[in-house]
Design a protein around this nucleic acid. Structure first.
Length: 890
DNA sequence: GTTGTTAATCTTTTT
DNA sequence: GATTAACAAC
């Protein structure tokens, strides 16, 4: 029986659950009351495992009057929750959706970012929310940041100046720190419920919390600072089990330093578990050697060995697409050799593999929790925008979602007439399946009705996942109406766009199990196919804020903590395998996984041929109309033989004889089809911003500026324009001679290569400003870009304009220079600066190559539109509209 | 070594 | 659209 604090270092597969259960049983046998025993683990899954294991031992030992439920088995959070809120059942945990919404609201009001709204909502806010959660897991609150502001700033500057951040300036970085603090603070002040971190803090602070005679803690290596203090303070005798080689939850503050300090504590008895009951000797040796490549002093690995036969070598599969090789490996494993765990690093890898398995109708269960159609949320949002707003852009976007009940052909026709202002929205009557639904009142009842009457029926006709996503979107909307009192449309769509739609997946007991490494922890499989993926370093400008805060307040070096986490992730994945292990990776990484004595390279050449997807008409036009109740429309769609979309594409390329730079430089066929051919493009804020600035530049030249009518931003842009103009005037001793010059020329005049082209194919451009001293000319293009990052692309455009201008005015191109005038450089993070810049640089050979490439591509499409369709089908996009259009083009 | 350009690529996850 | 690695140019 244990009678003093013990730390067990448990190598993988050494039976640590069994060991904990045994110790619990022994205590009960010795007469310790089960309610005096506490077991803490990390996940609900692990709680279940431990309960099962203890239950079994109770039965085996014929202990009748005790069940596993009498022993206190909790996760850290459940333990805290039940003790804090046992009397207040209504208490909730603040959701991610609310957290992101609060953070976004503050940043929105501060106008913290110059990025587009979509990028802030989809990328920045989730990362900041993650960062706040991470910082909090170290016990750091906004007040701590405020108190230590100066030293954190200093540390931040030092990190910035070491050169790791290249995409924003130092001043932006400093502003970002402040925005981050304010968002964190706002979140803390406005959330109405505790979050998971608060739960632990409040529990830890509790004066008279229950204590236990014996406390068992599993997976100790993943425990963060606050959890370790909870573990150490809730019981008399502590029994701690963990393995630092399996620490892979660094993102939630799981700090190896906590574990290491316990190892160094002499008051704790230490034990090693070194006998592995799971894997073959070869797999163990392989894992061990791999780990030792990256970390040498690992005493507990010294006698780490197994009890099984040697087994086969680990197979390293080197392929271009690891996900696709999985199929062939599965085929090579006999059914008699047990189950197969396919372990990936990311959920998106799992999704790729599951759609492959679906295609071959192979049965599997999956632990992925993404599996949702992100696009479904976008479709629903676009649909609701068209219901609630009157702007033509919103109406058009809503009409091309599957929910509108309008065929794409019809939607396209209505879009055309709305755009040309032949019709206004009032003219569409209530018999139209979309317009009849429009209702501008934003209320819970209204929205929920739409879900019942239109969104759910359509969603369920598309796919199971699509429907499940719709269901989570509906519940997010419910959350909005519960939490926010200010039901404005702006708030509504902000919340909706920020909400995550995750749903749990089909898990079951198939022979093939798809899982991520993190979820595979504690599990084992006869055969393991592992697909490693090295994480890509990103978001350094947020990272250095986070690490500065933690370092200066807690004196913990985050980089040290997370060092080699990838290796530990690999180690966990390898050691799930009992009999056979495959590691599938790309050519660059494969050599790193090869340990000659215990592994071998395997080539798989005959990747089975891809079978044609036979999902019949997921987005069948007529079917969608039918489900929406438009029977006549469905009938009409079915009976029409002509392929209207192909006709539109053919017509477009046939009639498009005047090329423009913005048209030919679109590299993605889907964008070209959507925005240029079908003209379904939305007018963005950035577009209006740029249009307005260009108008001012022209007015300035024509002396038509009415200063008193200008706002502050406009005044700033105007002064930036003046500054650019003056730089050219004084720098080159020139005068502006023209503004907004239209120039057009035949393609066959522009380049030798195109001399065979017919005379009617032209290239058109509008030159913002032309300067001259009589001999030399400078053509200037104004840009309202935030930064100068895309200058080289703009020079390709300027080259085209230079050629057009030289042809138009019969000037030797050598006498024409080009310049880019930046008139609103704001950076990415709002520092309240808005400056000008002039890049006086000439297009080079590469610019010329790019321009010719763009033109050739377009000419190719023009002479052969089927090539465009072919390219379209070759470059899939997640967008539902992409797929619906693709079905019409196949 | 620093700075500019281009060519791919686009985290993990628990309570 | 934004970011970074890798490459190229100073």
């Amino acid at each position: 029986m244990i009678n003093r604090d013990t730390l067990v270092i448990s190598n993988p597969g050494t039976g640590k659950t069994t060991m904990i259960s045994n110790e619990v049983i022994n205590l009960i046998k010795e007469g310790v009351k089960p309610e005096k025993i506490l077991c803490i683990t990390f996940t609900n899954n692990a709680v279940g495992e431990l309960q099962k294991s203890i239950d079994k031992l109770l039965i085996d030992n014929k202990i009748k009057n005790v069940t596993a439920y009498d022993v206190n088995i909790y996760t850290f959070h459940a333990l805290a929750f039940q003790e804090l809120f046992q009397s207040k059942a209504e208490k909730n945990i603040v959701s991610y959706n609310i957290a992101r919404y609060l953070i976004y609201k503050k940043l929105r009001d501060l106008e913290a970012f110059n990025y587009g709204r979509e990028y802030v909502i989809e990328d920045i806010v989730p990362k900041l929310e993650n960062a706040i959660r991470y910082i909090k897991s170290f016990g750091i609150m906004p007040v701590d940041i405020a108190k230590n502001r100066d030293i954190i700033m200093e540390s931040l500057r030092k990190k910035y100046n070491s050169g790791i951040v290249r995409n924003i300036g130092l001043e932006e970085e400093e502003y970002l720190f402040d925005y981050f603090y304010q968002a964190f603070n706002y979140y803390e002040e406005n959330k109405e419920n505790p979050d998971f971190n608060d739960l632990l803090f409040q529990f830890q602070k509790l004066e008279d919390k229950k204590t236990y005679e014996y406390v068992f803690v599993d997976e100790l290596q993943d425990v963060n600072d606050i959890e370790s203090r909870i573990a150490m303070s809730t019981g008399n005798v502590k029994f701690l089990v963990g393995d630092r080689k399996q620490s892979i939850f660094g993102f939630q503050g799981g700090a190896l330093s906590v574990f290491n300090s316990l190892i160094g504590n002499s008051g704790i008895e230490k034990k090693d578990l070194k006998i592995n009951y799971r894997s073959t000797e070869t797999i163990l040796a392989y894992s061990k050697q791999y780990y030792l490549k990256f970390e040498n002093d690992v005493p507990e690995l010294e006698n780490f060995r197994g009890t099984n036969k040697n087994g086969n070598k680990v197979k390293i599969v080197e392929v271009d697409s690891p996900e696709e090789s999985v199929m062939e490996i599965i085929n090579s494993i006999p059914v008699s050799s047990g189950n197969i765990g396919i372990i990936a690093r990311t959920n998106s890898q799992i999704d790729t593999i599951s759609s492959l398995l679906d295609r071959y109708s192979i049965d599997y269960s999956s632990d992925s929790n993404v599996h949702t159609i992100n696009q479904a949320k976008k479709d629903i949002t676009a649909f609701l925008k068209g219901i609630l707003y009157d702007r033509p852009d919103d109406i058009i976007n809503a009409m091309v979602t599957p929910f509108s009940g309008i065929s794409l052909k019809e939607a396209f026709k209505i879009a055309e007439s709305l755009r040309s202002e032949e019709n206004t929205i009032d003219l569409f009557d209530s018999s139209n399946p979309f317009f009849s639904l429009r209702n501008k009142e934003l209320s819970r009842e209204n929205i929920m009705d739409l879900f019942e009457s239109r969104i759910f029926p359509i969603a369920s006709s598309i796919s199971r996942e699509y429907f499940l996503t719709a269901a989570t979107v509906k519940s997010s909307i419910g959350e909005f109406f519960d939490a926010e009192r200010d039901y404005t449309r702006k708030n509504f769509f902000d919340f909706l766009d920020l909400s995550y739609s995750e749903n749990s997946s089909k898990s079951g007991n198939s022979r093939i199990i798809l899982t991520t490494v993190h979820k595979a922890k504690g599990r084992e499989f006869d055969n393991v196919i592992y697909l490693p993926k090295k994480p890509r370093k990103s978001d350094t400008y947020i990272d250095i804020i986070v690490s500065s805060i933690i370092e200066e307040i807690k004196r913990i070096n985050v980089d040290d903590e997370l060092k080699n986490e990838s290796v530990r992730i690999d180690f966990v994945a390898f050691t799930r395998a009992k009999e056979e292990l495959w590691v599938c990776t790309n050519r660059r990484e494969a050599p790193n996984y090869l340990i000659p004595e215990y592994s071998e390279m395997v080539a798989y050449e005959n990747i089975p041929e891809k079978q044609e997807v036979t999902v019949p008409g997921k987005y069948n036009e007529a079917y969608l109309q039918f489900v929406s109740g438009d029977y006549n429309g469905a009938k009409e769609t079915l009976s029409s033989k002509e392929n209207w979309l192909k006709n539109i594409i053919y017509e477009f390329f046939q009639n498009k004889n005047v090329l423009s730079f913005s048209l030919i430089s679109i590299e993605n066929p889907f964008f070209m089809l959507k925005n240029n051919i079908l003209k379904l493009n939305e007018k963005t804020d950035a577009l209006y911003y740029g249009l307005n600035a260009h108008e001012m530049a022209e007015s300035l030249y024509k002396n038509e500026i009415k200063n008193e009518l200008l706002g502050n931003v406009d005044k700033q842009i105007l002064s930036n324009i003046e500054s650019v103009v003056n730089q050219i005037k004084s720098g080159f001793n020139m005068e502006q001679i023209e503004a907004e010059v239209s120039a057009i020329a035949r393609i066959n005049q522009m380049f030798e290569e195109f001399s065979g082209q017919p005379d009617n194919i032209m290239f058109f451009g509008k030159i913002d400003a032309v300067f001259s001293d009589g001999k030399k000319y400078v053509i200037l293009d104004y840009k309202t870009d935030k930064t100068i990052e895309k200058a080289s692309h703009h020079r390709v455009q300027l080259l085209a304009y230079k050629i057009l201008y030289s042809i138009k005015n019969n000037i030797n191109p050598e006498n024409i220079d080009t310049a880019i005038g930046y008139i609103s450089m704001r950076g990415k993070i709002n520092t309240h600066e808005n400056t000008s810049g002039l890049i006086y640089k000439q297009p080079d050979k590469r610019s010329e190559d790019s321009l010719k490439k763009y033109i050739s591509k377009f000419l190719e499409y023009k002479s052969n539109p089927d090539k465009f369709i072919e390219d379209y089908l070759k470059q899939p996009s997640e967008d539902t509209l992409y797929e619906r259009l693709a079905e019409l083009l196949k």
